[in-house]
């Protein structure tokens, strides 16, 4: 009896508390930058695709909802296609953890409901954004040993000029 009255009293007190419910969608909640929502593919500071099609996101994905194929142009690796089946995605963020180039990132956007399941299949055109996302400065090819247009062998960060194989100096 006493506990029932106490419950009524506490509920009554809530009339005077600050309201937690917000009027979504007119009013948007604050989501931290690290919120794990819709996945995007970012670009490096030079505006090139960051994804090098290394397949690490695909293999890290616990629900196997990422599928891609590598292709290359002038020594740079790209995904020929990059597909995420968001109807399977559990937004765990493992793909972002696995990504060695900061290409794949989760964003604070969860508004992606669809009436048709197939509309939740995102291709590379749907995923690729024009900016660098959360990691503004990083460019994988500036540290990688591969030669690409505009960056020859020995021109990456922390690299010596190429060895002269025919040189006799010690």
């Amino acid at each position: 009896m006493l506990s029932a009255l106490r419950t009524l009293w506490l509920t009554f007190l809530h009339l005077f508390h600050r309201r937690e419910t917000i009027r979504y969608p007119e009013q948007k909640p604050y989501l931290a930058p690290r919120y794990r929502g819709r996945i995007i593919l970012s670009r490096d500071p030079d505006g090139e695709e960051r994804c090098v099609s290394c397949y690490l996101c695909a293999v890290a994905c616990p629900v196997d909802c990422i599928s891609l194929q590598k292709t290359a142009e002038d020594g740079r690796w790209y995904p020929e296609f990059f597909r995420i089946n968001f109807s399977r995605c559990i937004f765990c963020g493992y793909c972002e953890e696995a990504c060695p180039t900061y290409a794949i990132q989760l964003t604070p956007d969860f508004e992606m409901s669809e009436y048709e399941r197939r509309n939740l299949v995102y291709e590379k055109e749907d995923l690729l954004i024009s900016g660098t996302g959360k990691y503004p400065g990083y460019s994988f090819y500036r540290v990688s040993g591969l030669a690409i247009p505009g960056k020859d062998k020995g021109e990456a960060e922390g690299e010596e000029p190429p060895v002269d194989v025919k040189g006799l100096l010690p």
Binding site: A58, V59, R83
Partner: peptide
């Protein structure tokens, strides 16, 4: 083996 729920998703 990866991508089993995305390979044919298109």
């Amino acid at each position: 083996y990866s991508g089993r729920t995305a390979i044919h998703a298109d």
